Simulated scan of single mutants.
Amino acid sequence: MPPKDTQPKYRQIADYLRDGILDGTFPAGQPLPSEEALAKQFGVTRPTVRQGLAELRASGLVEAIMGRGTFARSPHSRPGLTRPRGVRRASDGRYIEADGIRWADAEPPVATRTDAPMALADLLRIPPGEPMFTYDALQTADNGRLRQLHRTYVPFSVLIDSKYEEEAPPPAPELYAALADLGHELHFTEYVRTRMPLPDQAQALRLADGVPLLHVLRVTLTQTDKPLALEEFHLPGDELELSFRL
């Protein structure tokens, strides 16, 4: 008698579908068995089936299309959107994102005072707990199809002996021109990783269950590599890839 599979049912479902996608049983672009059919085949409820599908969605092997069902994706297929990363300065002095996307804030960002947590203080080379101006924005583009969460941090110490001791600096990207006007020559470094979203992030970005985030930290530096500001981007990680020109 073969040994009984002790894995949770949702993982058995994920493994079954993953093997079928990789060996061609479920060709890329073709619909997978319905939730109802999988629930009957494995003797489970539909929420258990959805949990298995969420594992495959997080690894990019399936995609859900509203009103049509769940479809297999090739592990070698290209994402639906490629976004170049980087910042350049236009002839009129404005700083422009390399992807050329024009983002709109869902609400005007308001400066709040926060204290630098350990991880960000390390990147900014400031003491943990130093006060910072912080801006939060949900940004959309392409009639709401594209969404990102964008946060800007500016340490108070960067603004000493400038007009921004008396008034809040603007959020990025307007911040770049403001820093340049203070006499800084700017360049940027980005750090990229993936993680699962918090519930409020998943809701704001309209992420399906099991879809990870791309978490990007951008540090603005002077010509001598002194950090001036930090930005945090949260982007949907299912149909997006980032490209960097080296």
Rank of each mutant, 00 (worst) to 15 (best):
82 T>P: 00
245 R>Y: 10
214 L>Q: 15
211 V>G: 12
47 P>S: 11
11 R>M: 12
70 T>Y: 03
169 P>T: 14
147 R>V: 05
178 A>K: 02
111 A>Q: 02
98 A>D: 05
126 I>E: 03
141 A>I: 00
46 R>C: 00
38 L>K: 07
77 S>D: 14
64 A>L: 10
145 R>Q: 13
204 A>E: 06
153 Y>P: 01
54 A>P: 00
232 E>H: 13
223 Q>I: 08
116 A>T: 03
136 D>K: 08
55 E>I: 15
226 K>M: 07
222 T>G: 09
27 P>Q: 05
147 R>C: 02
78 R>E: 14
237 G>C: 15
4 K>M: 14
119 A>K: 11
6 T>E: 13
87 V>A: 01
20 G>N: 06
155 P>Q: 12
24 G>S: 02
190 E>D: 09
22 L>K: 13
205 L>I: 04
129 G>C: 07
31 P>N: 11
105 D>Q: 09
173 P>Q: 07
206 R>A: 14
196 M>G: 11
228 L>A: 04
124 L>H: 13
44 V>G: 04
84 P>R: 02
146 L>S: 02
243 S>N: 02
222 T>W: 03
174 E>I: 00
9 K>G: 05
235 L>T: 02
59 S>C: 13
53 L>S: 03
137 A>T: 10
107 E>N: 14
234 H>V: 05
55 E>Q: 15
10 Y>A: 15
54 A>K: 10
81 L>T: 08
169 P>E: 05
164 Y>T: 10
19 D>Y: 08
36 E>W: 06
1 M>L: 07
245 R>D: 08
124 L>V: 01
180 A>G: 09
34 S>Y: 01
122 D>L: 15
241 E>A: 14
144 G>E: 01
179 L>T: 11
177 A>N: 06
239 E>N: 14
93 G>V: 15
232 E>D: 09
206 R>I: 07
170 P>I: 03
215 H>S: 10
192 V>P: 03
34 S>D: 00
8 P>F: 08
136 D>A: 07
8 P>N: 05
133 F>T: 05
128 P>T: 13
15 D>A: 07
19 D>T: 13
